[in-house]
């Protein structure tokens, strides 16, 4: 996080040989000022507030899946797909505007694309061992693990109590 103290410090052992004034545009230290103007022309604070409003709106949208307005309550997959789409949109907004990636040079792909691919592969590699672990299980484990029938049992118990003692619920 330390800011380079001199132009030479910010670069490798090879520094420019030409006149400093001619290469000032490549100096990230002074480049902040140039960039600042760039950002200003890209929308500046008004744009940040627009992104903020969009993020709030999107959060409300994913929250809607929880409310009674949501028409696909009996099909949870619709809500899941919707929420992931909303989350990805929000993530893109944050990365592009708040993290300034929209205005960065092409180095952004060098750092983000391999990391994103590794992340996806990492999750996929968990599927065979972890995701499918309950496809075939030992008899003993089947005895002790929670199963959908336990949930039904609990629901039946709640119903039975409701009938026997309606005041309690």
């Amino acid at each position: 996080m330390s800011e380079p103290t001199s132009p030479a410090d910010s670069h490798g052992p090879i520094t420019r040989v030409g006149a400093p004034s001619s290469t000032a545009a490549h100096d990230p230290d002074s480049g902040h000022d140039d960039h600042g103007d760039d950002h200003g022309s890209h929308g500046g604070i008004g744009q940040y507030l627009a992104v903020f409003a969009a993020l709030c709106g999107l959060t409300t949208m994913s929250f809607l899946t929880y409310s009674s307005v949501w028409p696909w309550r009996d099909q949870p997959h619709v809500g899941w797909a919707f929420m992931m789409a909303v989350s990805c949109t929000k993530a893109m907004l944050v990365v592009l505007f708040f993290m300034h990636v929209l205005w960065e040079a092409n180095w952004k792909f060098v750092l983000t694309i391999p990391a994103a691919m590794m992340a996806i592969f990492l999750a996929l590699m968990l599927v065979p061992d972890v995701g499918l672990r309950n496809r075939m299980v030992a008899q003993e484990r089947l005895l002790h693990m929670a199963r959908p029938s336990d949930l039904i049992l609990m629901e039946r118990a709640a119903e039975a109590q409701l009938l026997a003692d309606p005041a309690a619920h």
Binding site: S2, P4, T23
Partner: peptide, 20 residues
């Protein structure tokens, strides 16, 4: 004219590496 490998300051480069 030296063209740095990545046109960004060291601090920012390291932060992005850390973020990846």
């Amino acid at each position: 004219q030296y063209q740095p490998g990545l046109p960004l300051s060291k601090g920012k480069l390291i932060m992005w590496l850390f973020l990846s």
